[in-house]
C-alpha cells in the first residue's frame, strides 16, 4: 500500500473541507477503499476518517425515515421500522456481501462503492474508469458482470450494489453537505451516472461534498420484493436484481415502482414501466410487454448476452409474484 496521511474529521463541514484537497479521500467503513488501496487502484495522499462523525442514527422524520450516512448496513437491515415498512430495503441489504462486511459498510460508503469490473481492479489492464483514455479491457473480454443498458463506447461497468437498487425503487433521496452549491438533495435515481464520455465519474458527488443521510419517503402500500439472481446462493454480486413495490386495486395494478441492479452503471429505473403497467390488469402478455420496453435498447458487449433473457425472465417472475398472477 502506498504511504498516505491519516486524519480524523471533526464534523461534516471539516470533512467536506478536508476531502476537497487534491488527493484526499473520505473513509468510513473502508471495506471497498482499503481493498482498492491494496491493489493500488486507489492511491490517496490523505485519508480523511469520517467514521466517528455524528451521522450514525436512524430517525423517524415527519415525511419518512432518515438514515444517517454512517449507519451500518447491518443497523439499517435490522431496524424494526425498516423491516416492517421498507422490507425491500432490508431484503436488498441482506442479499449483499456477508455479515462481516455489512457490519462495517455504511449508507454513504455503500452508495459510493466502486464497480467490481475485474478490468477496473487489475492495474495491468486498460480501463477508462481507472485510467482515462487507456481503453476498455472488458469489451470483448470476459465480461459476465457487465452492463447491457446505458453503456457507452468508453465503459460497460455496472454499479455493483444492492442497497441503492431498493432505495431507487423507494425513490429515496441523498442529502449532501458542502461544496460550492451548499446543501442539496439528490434522488437516488439521479445520484449515480451513466458512463458516457466520463466513466471515471461514478456519481454526481463533487469534490468537497459529503453525504450526510438518505431519507426514505413515507411507507407505501403494496407488496415489496427484492429478487437477486447470482452465480452462487450467497456472497456474490447480482447478475440481475430487481427491487419491486407493486400495489393492486380492484384487479388492476395501482403502483409499480421497479429498479434493477446488475444491468447498468447505475441502479436502473425506467419510468416507462410504471406508465405501461399502472391501470392494467396483470397478465403474462403484459409482463412480456414490460420486458420488451425495459430491454428495447439492450446491448451486450462482452460475455453478458445471457443477461438479456435473464432480465426478461426475472422481471416476469417478479411481476407474477407481486401481482399473484396465475400462469
Amino acid at each position: 500500500m502506498r504511504p498516505f496521511d491519516y486524519i480524523r474529521a471533526t464534523d461534516p463541514t471539516d470533512a467536506a473541507e478536508r476531502t476537497s484537497a487534491p488527493g484526499a479521500m473520505a473513509i468510513a467503513g473502508g471495506t471497498n477503499l482499503i481493498d482498492l488501496m491494496k491493489l493500488q487502484v486507489e492511491t490517496p495522499d490523505t485519508l480523511v476518517d469520517v467514521g466517528r462523525l455524528d451521522m450514525g442514527s436512524i430517525e423517524e422524520a415527519g415525511d419518512g425515515l432518515r438514515i444517517g450516512a454512517l449507519v451500518t448496513n447491518t443497523a439499517t437491515a435490522v431496524h424494526p421500522k425498516v423491516r416492517a415498512d421498507y422490507p425491500v430495503l432490508a431484503r436488498a441489504i441482506l442479499a449483499g456481501a456477508t455479515q462481516q462486511l455489512r457490519n462495517k459498510a455504511t449508507t454513504a460508503g455503500n452508495l459510493c462503492q466502486r464497480t467490481r469490473c475485474t478490468y477496473f481492479t487489475n492495474i495491468d489492464q486498460p480501463c477508462n474508469k481507472r485510467a482515462p483514455g487507456s481503453g476498455c479491457g472488458a469489451m470483448g473480454g470476459v465480461a459476465r458482470l457487465h452492463a447491457i443498458l446505458g453503456t457507452s463506447d468508453q465503459c460497460i461497468a455496472t454499479y455493483p450494489g444492492d442497497m441503492a437498487v431498493a432505495m431507487a425503487a423507494l425513490d429515496a433521496h441523498v442529502h449532501i453537505q458542502g461544496g460550492r452549491g451548499g446543501d442539496r438533495q439528490v434522488p437516488v435515481r439521479e445520484f449515480h451516472r451513466l458512463p458516457g464520455e466520463t466513466p471515471w465519474q461514478d456519481n454526481v458527488l463533487e469534490s468537497g461534498e459529503i453525504i450526510t443521510a438518505v431519507t426514505l419517503p413515507l411507507p407505501v402500500k403494496g407488496k415489496q420484493i427484492y429478487r437477486k439472481v447470482r452465480e452462487r446462493s450467497s456472497y456474490a454480486f447480482a447478475l440481475v436484481s430487481i427491487a419491486a413495490i407493486v400495489a393492486m386495486d380492484g384487479g388492476r395494478i395501482a403502483r409499480a415502482d421497479l429498479a434493477f441492479g446488475g444491468l447498468a452503471h447505475k441502479p436502473w429505473h425506467d419510468p416507462r414501466l410504471a406508465d405501461l403497467l399502472v391501470g392494467e390488469a396483470p397478465s403474462p402478455a403484459l409482463f412480456e410487454k414490460a420486458a420488451d420496453v425495459l430491454l428495447d435498447e439492450a446491448d451486450a458487449r462482452g460475455g453478458s448476452e445471457f443477461k438479456i433473457p435473464l432480465a426478461r425472465r426475472t422481471l416476469t417472475a417478479v411481476l407474477t409474484e407481486a401481482t399473484e398472477t396465475r400462469t
Binding site: T31, I34, D49, Q99, K104
Partner: peptide, 13 residues
Amino acid sequence: GFRINSCLTLAAM
C-alpha cells in the same frame, strides 16, 4: 462485539 474482516480495516481506525 461485531464480527468484521480485520484485513479490510486499519488498526488506526
